[in-house]
Design a protein around this nucleic acid. Structure first.
Lengths: 350, 350
DNA sequence: AATAGTTAGTAAATCGATTTACCAAAAATA
DNA sequence: TATTTTTGGTAAATCGATTTACTAACTATT
């Protein structure tokens, strides 16, 4: 029945000193307050007993947890997990730990998560917010808790955020498709008010209108676990618009469903449709033919989001500032948007 | 300059009662200790002030955090993120929160993470351990902290774990390939001592030996960020073994690299190679041709791992028991392992 | 020698909860 | 009426750290 948890008291007792002294030593505040001999002795005992301060107790006392909550839409999406990994790395350098969770784009789950992390008193939040989470997030702001949004933000409120130039990069991508000879470009997007989706749709609209072409738009009511329904909706959309010869998917998981719908409908990328997709994915790189994408600059997004948050957390002047950053995305052209006659020459699969 | 954080004291003061009483009410221990009128009043005030107890303080006092650490190899791998999501759901039902992190198969990072979570005093651990983490994990056991391993375990120690029958399911898969007429099956695996990899390799060896065929084995020294090197190694492997006409990839990310290597070498699944892979992935389902996989039963793994942990956390009898569970995996047959002549008839791509 | 400054330390309050031990008043019982 | 039980409640210790305010013993200065 050995005593399990050792505390600062045990260390103090073993060293024949006070907890104050041990605490000073632990926090590097011992410089001219504690004799070198005692410092060394205490450190030795700490080492021997393999003592680690309880961060629970530390945080209770100091009000700092050195922990940041990262709320993403879906951690299994490579866009978000890529961001998460980069932020985690960056945060470690500044002594912060990241804890992440998926909101699944569900405002209720988000609300629960925010409550949870507030109880844990994390120091700051990096959030890709779902529709409907504005109110809960504003509550954070009102408590002066540092928050940065990314991937999307709330048009009706000025809050720190880091996003890409969804509109312009989408427009560029659609123009590329049109210039390659595809005059009937469809757009598959989410039925959502999220700013990034709105931006991508606008980019599509811009390009189509400028070229004076016809619009084909499908709004998908996205729900996790209802893949079957969504695949069927897309297949119907394809069937209902036989003139459509190109598709713009507004996000990677829509494209994955869309490819599945093609497979079932016996339609092929590079034969029946040119395809371009917002967001990168292993699948797109390795697909036959490889699929053109708009790739987001993960490193810049992660770096900027963290930098803004760090500033808010550590600069406690009472000047209030809001930082809103928009970063360009990159069009990676692959064979899925090649002119089909060209393609059938160079590609070997068709 | 309003006071920001409200505590149980504020509630007690506002209700003209003691913190003891408030605490009893919060914890449902008020039944015959506090009058209904007072209970109602306190609850009303809590509601009004939107008070939430600091879980930091609660945990410090009670020693429980109701939090479980889930350490996976890589949260962006759909196998692990799928497991994470299921465990998270299951844990919520029992009042636990999951915090997850990626070890990246790095024992040092794992060690750091374990320290971090111990400081935070999480109640238990679910871990897919990297090679070399045994010592740190044994330290947890010695402190009587509940731990369950999954996906792999340590052959030299009996610890709670949940894995699939790697050996048998691999053997079955390879037999299927052989029976479809492919007599020169290669195996690409990790250069690692992890039990799941060893099991998969054994399954391959079993099947090849039983059929009296030649082995082609490539051990990849996996390092994140060195994709280029690994792709090149695989391409060389293909080139060096022109007789090889089928491939078994021991895990999904190896297969993704392997497909990239084929693309660069102008080799094709369903024409140059039959392919089977351990673990499911969107890419495999949607590839042309779709790729045969050994799919792990995520729900059963998650359910069993959590159940074992819950039992350890809540049943504090001093009976020590170890639970080791092996679950069958499922072979999902797709066109990548069809007999090529058949395939070229039914498939339309070739 | 008297005073000021430095060195090396500690006691006790505090963060925000839970929980034990105790108590006064009212109700029930003898 | 005296005693016991029940009801309704609280004071204070505690979890494990940090931090403020203080002090005793030297050393240096004038």
């Amino acid at each position: 029945m050995k005593k399990n948890k050792i505390s600062i008291k045990d260390i103090a007792a073993a060293a024949g000193t006070s907890t104050t002294t041990v605490s000073f030593i632990l926090n590097g505040k011992a410089d001219h307050k504690v004799s070198p001999a005692l410092i060394e002795k205490v450190l030795r005992i700490i080492e021997e007993k393999n003592y680690r301060p309880s961060s629970l107790a530390q945080s209770l006392r100091t009000g700092k947890t050195n922990t940041i909550a990262l709320l993403v839409e879906d951690i299994s999406n490579p866009f978000f997990s890529g961001i998460a990994r980069l932020i985690e790395e960056r945060a470690a350098k500044s002594g912060y730990k990241i804890v992440y969770s998926s909101t699944e784009n569900n405002p209720e789950k988000t609300s629960t998560l925010l409550d949870f992390f507030q109880e844990k008193q994390v120091d700051g939040y990096i959030i890709s917010p779902p529709d409907g989470a504005l109110e809960d997030i504003l509550k954070l702001k009102n408590k002066n808790i540092p928050v940065v949004l990314f991937d999307r933000h709330f048009a009706e409120t000025n809050m720190n955020h880091v996003v890409v130039d969804n509109r312009l990069s989408s427009q560029t991508a659609i123009k590329h498709v049109i210039n390659n000879g595809f005059k009937n470009v469809g757009c598959i997007t989410l039925n959502s008010h999220q700013t990034q989706m709105a931006g991508r749709l606008q980019g599509y609209n811009d390009a189509i209108e400028q070229a004076g072409l016809k619009k084909y738009i499908l709004n998908i009511d996205y729900k996790a676990g209802e893949n079957e329904r969504m695949v069927i909706e897309m297949a119907k959309f394809y069937k209902a618009n036989p003139s459509m010869n190109a598709l713009f998917f507004c996000t990677n998981y829509l494209a994955i469903l869309g490819l599945e719908a093609m497979q079932r409908s016996n339609l092929k990328v590079g034969k029946d449709f040119a395809v371009v997709c917002f967001d990168e994915h292993d699948l797109f790189r390795l697909y036959s033919p490889p699929i053109t994408v708009i790739a987001q600059p993960l490193a810049e997004i992660a770096e900027n989001a963290f930098a803004i948050l760090l500033n808010e957390m550590e600069n406690q002047s009472n000047i209030k500032r809001v930082e809103m950053i928009e970063i360009p995305a990159t069009l990676i052209i692959r064979q899925s948007t090649s002119n089909f006659s060209n393609f059938s020459i160079t590609g070997s699969v068709f």
